[in-house]
């Protein structure tokens, strides 16, 4: 019995690997077709890059908020670290583009990860509401310091003329970064490391008693989340060409949170879909841009109320929706 089950399980894993490969191939074909056929035009091609930034940011926040279960309100802060570090590297080095990009990405990710480690230390002693506030405070401190060290960051005016390495002209590079980032994060989630993180979320007392070092895994989740937020920041900076502290404000953190909440906490697929839809939709409905944040706010409230309502419970219990809601495992 155990043996058969293991075989079936291995088969399942292999199937999902093939599925992933197919999805990735389709993503490449789809994006290449969209861009090279010119259907998108200039404006929508640049939306593609925003979509990419938001996907990486949302999935990396999901790691912390969805899988570790700790609300982070300072994700934009990590993106800022990545954006500034990356931009400073590519601005000050005079090397061939591929080398600069590689160093910039590595620097952006690593620097953000270091800050993830720093913020991870208070995290050890806190959780829930207090932790959320510390992450918020952290985001504010980053912005404040970026404003202060003018000689390096240009203060409130920010950095200009950043090399346009990740604009829509380089969409294949950006797409590859998205694919790699998401793949790495989803593989981590599906490994023993991800399992430990999820166990901490579900019941940290039991997780600890089961031999999991909560401290290490909490920090680990924050560091990995921050690393990829840094990567997203790099892409952001080298797409728009100009960055200032005010761009990475609390609003940005909330935007990313909306993707995670709407897509479903603990669902990577959901984060991706939400990031795509919520980035493209406002673009398509330009006239309603004033209502975008209002809509986001309503989404946050309604999703939370619905998720915890009797209505949802009834729907889940009485209908075929049960599978949809309860089967969350094996998801990439």
């Amino acid at each position: 019995m155990a043996n058969e089950f293991v075989k079936a399980k291995t088969k399942e894993v292999r199937k999902s690997t093939i599925q992933k490969a197919v999805i990735i191939a389709l993503a490449y074909v789809g994006v290449i077709a969209l861009v090279s056929s010119g259907v998108l035009g200039y404006q929508y091609s640049s939306v593609l890059i925003s979509v990419a930034v938001n996907i990486i940011a949302a999935v990396s926040l999901n790691l912390v908020t969805g899988f570790l279960g700790e609300l982070s309100l300072g994700h934009a802060g990590f993106m800022a670290i990545g954006a500034y570090t990356g931009a400073l590297i590519t601005l000050h080095l005079n090397l061939p583009a591929p080398v600069e990009i590689f160093l910039g990405l590595a620097g952006a990710g690593i620097m953000a990860a270091i800050f993830g480690l720093i913020i991870g230390i208070p995290v050890l002693r806190l959780h829930g509401d207090y932790l959320a506030i510390v992450t918020l405070a952290f985001g504010q401190i980053i912005a404040s310091i970026l404003n202060y060290v003018k000689s390096i960051t240009g203060g409130a005016a920010g950095l200009n003329n950043i090399e346009e390495y990740t604009t829509s002209d380089h969409y294949l590079l950006v797409l590859t970064l998205v694919v790699l980032s998401v793949l790495i994060m989803s593989n981590i989630i599906n490994s023993r490391y991800g399992r430990a993180i999820t166990a901490v979320r579900d019941n940290y007392i039991a997780a600890e008693a089961t031999g999991i070092c909560i401290r290490n895994y909490k920090i680990f989740a924050f560091v990995v989340g921050a690393f990829f937020a840094g990567i997203a920041g790099f892409i952001f900076a080298h797409n728009v060409g100009v960055i200032k502290p005010s761009k990475f404000d609390f609003n940005m953190s909330i935007n990313i949170l909306v993707f995670v909440v709407l897509g479903g906490m603990g669902s990577i697929k959901g984060s991706i879909i939400a990031a795509v839809v919520l980035t493209v939709l406002p673009e398509a409905l330009r006239g309603l841009s004033d209502y975008r944040m209002l809509m986001y706010a309503v989404i946050l409230i309604v999703v939370m109320l619905f998720n915890n309502s009797k209505l949802r419970k009834r729907l889940v219990e009485e209908s075929g929706l049960k599978k949809l809601f309860t089967k969350k495992k094996g998801e990439a």
């Binding site: 609300l71 309100l73 509401d129 909330i254 906490m265 209002l294 706010a297 309503v298 946050l300 939370m304």
Partner: peptide, 30 residues
């Protein structure tokens, strides 16, 4: 917004409260 979540996890309540904050800000903005 909060009463229906009285027995919900604190994460859900906090997110709802943030949503409410955003709702008020953007309602007045509009």
């Amino acid at each position: 917004a909060y009463k229906p979540l009285r027995n919900a996890p604190s994460l859900a309540v906090l997110i709802t409260a943030i949503g409410m904050s955003y709702f008020l800000q953007n309602l007045f903005l509009v």
